[in-house]
Design a protein around this nucleic acid. Sequence first.
DNA 1: TCGTTTCTTTGATTTATATCATTATTCTAT
DNA 2: ATAGAATAATGATATAAATCAAAGAAACGA
Lengths: 231, 231
Amino acid sequence: MTQPQTPDSCLHCLQKCDAFQALNHSEMEILHEAKYDTTYRTGEVIAKQGAPISHLVSLNAGLVKVVLETSGEQDIIISIEKPVFILTGPGLFVDNRYHFSVIALSECHTCYLEIQQLHRLMDTNPDFAKRFYKNIGERAIMLYNRIRSLNQKNMAGRISEALLILQKTIFEANPFELILTRQELAEFTSMTKESVSRILKEFKEEGLIKIEDRQVEIIDFEKMNSISRKG
Amino acid sequence: MTQPQTPDSCLHCLQKCDAFQALNHSEMEILHEAKYDTTYRTGEVIAKQGAPISHLVSLNAGLVKVVLETSGEQDIIISIEKPVFILTGPGLFVDNRYHFSVIALSECHTCYLEIQQLHRLMDTNPDFAKRFYKNIGERAIMLYNRIRSLNQKNMAGRISEALLILQKTIFEANPFELILTRQELAEFTSMTKESVSRILKEFKEEGLIKIEDRQVEIIDFEKMNSISRKG
DNA sequence: TCGTTTCTTTGATTTATATCATTATTCTAT
DNA sequence: ATAGAATAATGATATAAATCAAAGAAACGA
């Protein structure tokens, strides 16, 4: 599973992440001294809910789903993330555990950094600390929106929102490849896979979207946005 | 609305909050130099979703609801909070805005601290910073649990969970005064006020709880816990 | 104290969505 | 290629919960 990668490529990836731009060269060096790279295959668990946070993991290539595991049968997909994504969560300063799982949706390249180094940087570089907390904060804000969506939008609204998120923020292309199965789309929108099928069928019949193979094309953005908002 | 309060009482309140125990006497002094106290009446808005975070507000007495305002008719109550509660959110390091509203459920005493002083302390006292982020992190973790509950528990499960939260973490007494109206209980559990009435009636008929006036007593904790978990 | 408004209860009905059941399709590994 | 497993589509039915409606109780202001 472990794969060699040049330090430069990892360094380059990290610097795409706002927080790490606050580090000077020697600080970066220290972070890199003990790092190692890993490749995950589709479906593999990169971070496990409940497990201790042993390292700071950075997603440098590939797509992942952030999953809330539940006692019931169906999990909840909180978000889909693309590089550069730092796998941290609020647990880092509370109980040092993951409060969600992160699972590869495609082949993923990650790099592991020493968590003690992170803490040291947080203590000595307030600018880095602020940016790092900003990163965590942005995801907390996303959670508020998630709660809103899941609780007051109807199924059509949730599906159109999900498709628009994938199109706009993840793939930035149209058509795009729908990497999620119907079951995953159901977990992303908190509904059953059967209902997902039905809503997508409606959308196709009304000419809002086209689906061929795994390629999804959003045709009527205006209508989709409207459904997503009012839903 | 503004009320005099001795500096000592406020100081005493703040020190109940973990983060502020990391401050030495002179740091506390600086925080206090520019502070001022305010009293809110029931229903008044202490923090408004979307408004800039101008001060660090500490709730020293009274109860509040943390509300997610939505485009629809019904808001979502994220949590009920009691003193000492620091009204910060993830917005502090992102866009400097509140991403929820905080509304008084009873007469509330608050104290306002200069936000620049907070930022200065964060930069100079890493221990304080960590504890402060821990505070914010704990609330983000609570959000994950909230998402789980609202999305996969049935109505009975959500209501019993809500009552148990109020009993165990807010009032720590039994019976306790239900400060929430049926409408608020509905917003806390993401259902309609009519459904809240019906579920409470069922609980009463099955001898799980007693309600007289605004006094609620949980009779069968075991059953209530079980409903809350399985629901 | 009265009148008005808000809050609460309860019943009847509707609706959105889940569940169940079946068949079709695609993927995967041998 | 082929069997077996996962994935998807679709119809029929069930059900949880919302909505509508109406009346009773409590809180509040003048």
